[in-house]
Design a protein around this nucleic acid. Structure first.
Length: 1003
RNA sequence: GGGCGCUUGGCGCAGUGGCUAGCGCGUCUCGUUUACACCGAGCAGGUCGGGGGUUCGAAUCCCUCAGCGCCCACCA
């Protein structure tokens, strides 16, 4: 580090070191190196969408993972941070489809399935994974040799095998159900992909005539008049005295107007679901377009009339006037029609919650359709394994226990408990697990894992199916992974999940579904010969992501050898998962169930839930608001370390993060401070008698009080860091680093060390009679302390600031003396600092007393500076102070006082008497006087002292009263009592001193 | 309708029964002294959301009210 720039320039440093780490394979995990002495540590990245670009959310999430991974490496663990991307079905298909329509004016259907999928792959190769290169810019230490994609060939096989396996277990079934239908993307969605949004709309009241009692009308309130043509009943609460008498009668549905009367006759039914407080207490029932209505329909065996096309436009069953209209347009027209026929009674403004497609941001259309569903596996185990708050009473740091347990026995038995951080998410998880609904896993898309089911419909007496069934059974006996399900009309009566619905266009049919591992080519060709076709649907993207922790580690899906890959054996279960609470159900819960079901063990030991990044005003980051900063731009302007540090510093555990660019600026300033502190060490090192080389040995006999103090502060910082890591409190960790390095090391220690480092003093003479005469030996000793502290500090910083610490580690020469694998090559593998132990402390003579004495001396400095400011003495003007010490002070300390007070001299006078023109203050380590020789503003000083005295009085009285209370003195613990007595004595001493000073001014 | 979280100086936050309630940012004043103006020094600024209770002692524990936010839920 010869020519050191005055300011840190991250741009010239970051790429260099990232390449250095890659070249030396620093991020590559080797299962063979794992041993009881070198335990494994693993994280799988939450795979970002392959279409994604880096957002502040990614920065937060991945910085935390990188911090954990880098810390674990320094702890001597074998670390695997496994990266990759997610194929993100809907998102990716949407991106490519939009591109296609923009550039070629074609739809995906124009291209056809195979060609379209080719285009998606081409797009993926070209643009996909931009985010991967962005993660590298951030400094992420992922093992890129193991990068995975959820559509990789071997990953896809895992997905298919899992499907067949669950199908065999009877957990996957096909069913015609009410699903969340997205008319924009024209696919079914899971419940989790629906977000509720408050919508302002209207509640329309319309009347219907009771067929059996002409002239009697019921009024119905609805928000969706366009679905009237789909109504097949009107429901009232059977306990509702107003209406119960009408149950069993019929009403005439007003729409479609042109339909014959008998087609529009629908029954009035009684159902408990109807709330008689709401609206008029009469509910229109549309079993084909509303989830609750569907269930009412099931209970009363109502017909289902589907009046919409899949794209959300009305079909002919909605009637001439509505046919072809978009559902929202149809709503307006339906209202007009009702008004026209005099059926509309009123319309009132109404706000309700409407389900929206999370991806496409359009209202969901509840729609009856045939889909694949999964009954969740391993639910009980998954529910029990997450530690609830009540479980943990009396367990101070269970994470430490976890780590130790794992280190102790390398072959781990199945883990019992998993911890969430913050733990309150366990409750949310628990609640969801208690109310699990079957998961709709099929999607009407092309980009994704195609459902490995071949099926054929036939008439009930079709001979081909039975014959084929027999044939397939022989394959099955030979161990092929296939499963058949024969659907016959009879099953309908049993009300089972495998309900075969009557196909409206055809007669009853039977169907043979065959789930096959797609690698069973013989079987598939046999099926295809017999006219079987593969299900056109693909699986929900999360149906592949839920296997991520083990499908990425070489899991084959073959149960007999599921733990046979070295990677799985070494790194599964993973240690930590870092993710956002928004995907706790989508991903975390499902991974836990999959972990148990397919690996027989939980997938991770700890889950850290980050907060959500918001803007300064607390709004969510969003593209439409334009309030989402580009992290790459921030990295360009401030450096990756600055972005990381600024983000971590403002990200307390469990709370949302308000992003403010000022935080990044602060991170940059901090890096610069670190840079300059090292630069200072280089500059003082090359002058005087010491060379620029690292000073190794510290001589206990030559330590100054400040040296001892900073070593003790370093010790405290290391301990605090360890606690923060154990509790996943990264903002605490950065706060500790900030305080220790900036306030304690730079502001106090470095400034004080200048007394020992003074080149003048080192020459053996001094300009100041009161100054100590530090020898050259003391000087190099202080340099050695600085090197000790800095080399530890850099290591404490490294997980947070990987680039600048690597640059300084080498630049300062700290790498030189270290063994190759312990920091000699890179700070990445330098050992994490240990707290200073008792041996160390006694060898160097470090005691709590030293710490207190320096802090008392520093208080003297602060008070002295305060006096200066109150006397309006310019910061650069040299003055003389007089000190009447409470106890003996070393020459070094007096010299430090002189330096830090920017004084010509600090004279120690045991019997100094204050005079009229002297300002003064009493501190624990003595009375400080600032003689002003007539320059003093007596009135101002009187006022200041009076104010001071008032405050002192108030505090003294408070303590006096406490001590006067016998209840207090009797019940309070001895140490607290003692502390209060001391406090009173201190206040009284200050009171006396201030009174005396005030009195002196009166003369 | 249930559940969870939050409320401490202008802003963002620490502080789970006992130091004079801290920290960072910001504001203001002074300052180019052997790293750093991306800096240093100093001042100002808080009845800890309201009310009640437990206790010798409450920002901290309990009750209650209010406000804000999030999640879950089939009132059309």
């Amino acid at each position: 580090m010869s020519e050191i720039p005055k300011a840190y320039e991250p741009q010239s440093v970051e790429d260099k070191w990232y390449q250095f780490w890659l070249d030396r394979k620093c991020f590559v995990a080797d299962p063979a190196r794992v041993s009881p002495k070198r335990p494994a540590y693993s994280i799988v990245i939450p795979p970002p969408n392959v279409t994604g670009v880096l957002t502040m959310g990614h920065v937060l999430n991945n910085t935390i993972q990188d911090i954990l991974a880098r810390k674990a490496r320094m702890d001597g663990k074998e670390v695997l941070w496994l990266p990759g991307t997610d194929h993100a079905g809907i998102a990716t298909e949407g991106v490519v489809a939009r591109l296609l329509s923009k550039e070629e004016k074609k739809s995906k259907r124009d291209l056809g399935r195979d060609e379209f999928i080719k285009r998606v792959w081409a797009w993926k190769e070209k643009y996909g994974g931009i985010i991967i290169s962005q993660l590298k810019k951030l400094g992420c230490s992922c093992d890129w040799t193991r990068e995975r994609f959820t559509m990789d060939e071997d990953y896809a096989r895992c997905v298919q095998k899992v499907f067949v396996d669950l199908y065999q277990k009877g957990l996957i079934y096909r069913g015609k159900r009410m699903v969340n239908w997205c008319p924009a993307t024209q696919t079914a969605l899971s419940d989790e992909e629906v977000v509720m949004k408050e919508q302002k709309g209207s509640l329309y009241y319309f009347k219907v005539e009771i067929d059996e009692q002409p002239g009697t009308f019921l009024t119905i309130a609805t928000t969706r008049p366009e679905t009237i043509p789909g109504d097949t009943a009107v429901a009232v609460n059977p306990r509702d005295p107003r209406y119960s008498k009408y149950i069993g009668k019929h009403v005439i549905r007003p729409l479609p107007a042109e339909f014959p009367r008998e087609q529009k006759l629908i029954p009035i039914i009684g159902d408990e679901h109807v709330d008689f407080e709401f609206g008029t207490g009469v509910l229109k029932v549309t079993p084909a377009h509303d989830k609750a209505d569907f269930e009412i329909g099931q209970r009363h065996n109502l017909a289902q009339i589907d009046i919409m096309h899949p794209n959300g436009h009305m079909n002919p069953l909605a009637g001439e006037a509505l046919n072809g209209l978009d559902r929202f347009k149809a709503r307006k027209v339906a209202v007009e029609l009702l008004t026209g026929m005099g059926a509309l009674e009123k319309e009132e403004p109404y706000t309700n919650n409407v389900g929206f497609s999370e991806r496409a941001d359009v209202p969901i259309e509840p729609r009856l359709s045939e889909q694949w569903f999964l009954k969740y596996p391993s639910v009980d185990k998954a529910r029990e394994c997450v530690e609830q708050e009540d479980d943990s009473v009396g367990r101070a740091s269970s994470r430490a226990e976890f780590s130790d347990a794992k280190a102790g026995s390398s072959v781990a038995s199945p883990h019992q408990k998993m911890r969430f951080h913050p733990q309150r998410w366990a409750k949310v998880y628990d609640h969801w697990m208690d109310t699990l609904q079957d998961w709709c896993i099929s999607r009407q898309l092309w980009w994704g894992h195609r459902i490995p089911v071949w099926s054929k419909k036939a008439n009930e007496d079709g001979p081909s199916i039975t014959a084929l069934q027999t044939q397939l059974n022989t394959f099955k006996q030979s161990g092929a992974l296939i499963q058949m399900n024969l659907y016959t009309p009879h099953e309908k009566k049993e009300g089972a999940t495998n309900v075969l619905q009557r196909d409206p266009q055809e007669n009853y049919f039977i169907r043979l579904d065959v789930a096959v591992d797609p690698t069973e080519e013989k079987i598939i060709s046999l099926l295809e010969q017999h006219g079987f076709t593969q299900d056109p649907d693909v699986l929900d993207t999360w149906f592949s992501s839920w296997l991520w922790p083990f499908a990425t580690m070489g899991w084959t899906g073959d149960k007999s050898q599921h733990s046979s890959t070295p990677t799985l054996q070494a790194f599964y279960p993973t240690t930590d998962l870092v993710t956002g609470p928004d995907i706790i159900f989508f991903w975390v819960a499902r991974m836990i169930m999959a972990g148990y079901e397919f690996m027989g063990d939980l997938p991770f030991e700890n889950v850290y839930f980050t907060g959500i990044i918001r803007d300064k005003q607390g709004r969510k980051m969003s593209k439409s608001l334009g309030n989402s900063p580009d992290p790459l731009d921030l990295i360009g302007r401030y450096g990756a370390d600055a972005l990381r540090f600024g983000t971590m510093r403002s990200a307390p555990l469990g709370q949302d993060i308000l992003f403010d660019e000022q935080n990044v600026e602060l991170g940059r300033n901090f890096c610069n401070k670190l840079w300059n502190a090292c630069r200072f060490r280089q500059m003082v090192g090359s002058g005087g008698s010491a060379t620029g080389e690292v000073q190794g040995e510290i001589d206990p006999k030559l330590l100054t009080s400040d040296d001892k103090w900073i070593l003790l502060r370093l010790d405290a910082a290391i301990r605090e860091m360890n606690t923060a890591f154990a509790e996943y409190k990264f903002s605490d960790a950065t706060a500790t680093l900030y305080r220790f390095f900036w306030s304690e090391y730079c502001d106090w220690y470095v400034e004080a060390s200048k007394a020992a480092l003074s080149p003048v003093a080192a020459n053996g003479s001094s300009l100041h009679s009161s100054a100590a005469l530090p020898s050259a030996a003391t000087r190099s000793n202080t340099l050695a302390v600085i090197d000790f502290v800095l080399s530890h500090t850099l290591r404490l910083f490294h997980p947070f600031l990987p680039f600048i610490t690597e640059e300084l580690w080498h630049g300062m020469g700290y790498a030189v003396d270290m063994p190759e694998n312990q920091g000699g090559r890179t700070i990445m593998t330098a050992p994490w600092p240990k707290p200073l132990d008792d041996d160390f402390k006694s060898h160097y003579g470090l005691t709590g007393d030293d710490e207190k004495r320096i802090e008392a001396r520093n208080e003297l400095v602060s008070e002295g500076r305060n006096l200066r400011r109150n006397a309006n003495i310019a910061a650069n003007k040299k003055v003389k102070f007089i000190l009447k010490p409470a106890r003996e002070l070393a020459a070094h300390d007096v010299e430090v006082l002189r330096l830090l007070l920017n004084a010509d001299s600090v004279e120690v006078q045991a019997n100094y008497q204050s005079s009229k023109s002297t300002m003064t203050v009493r501190t624990e380590s003595g009375d400080l006087f600032l003689p002003l020789e007539g320059l003093i503003d007596v009135e101002a000083e009187k006022a200041r002292l009076a104010k001071e005295l008032q405050k002192i009085e108030a505090e003294a009285v408070k303590v006096e009263q406490k001590l006067a209370n016998p209840n207090f003195t009797q019940k309070v613990p001895a140490n607290v009592l003692q502390e209060h007595k001391q406090r009173l004595a201190d206040w009284q001493a200050k009171r006396e001193h201030t009174k005396a000073a005030l009195a002196a001014l009166q003369n």
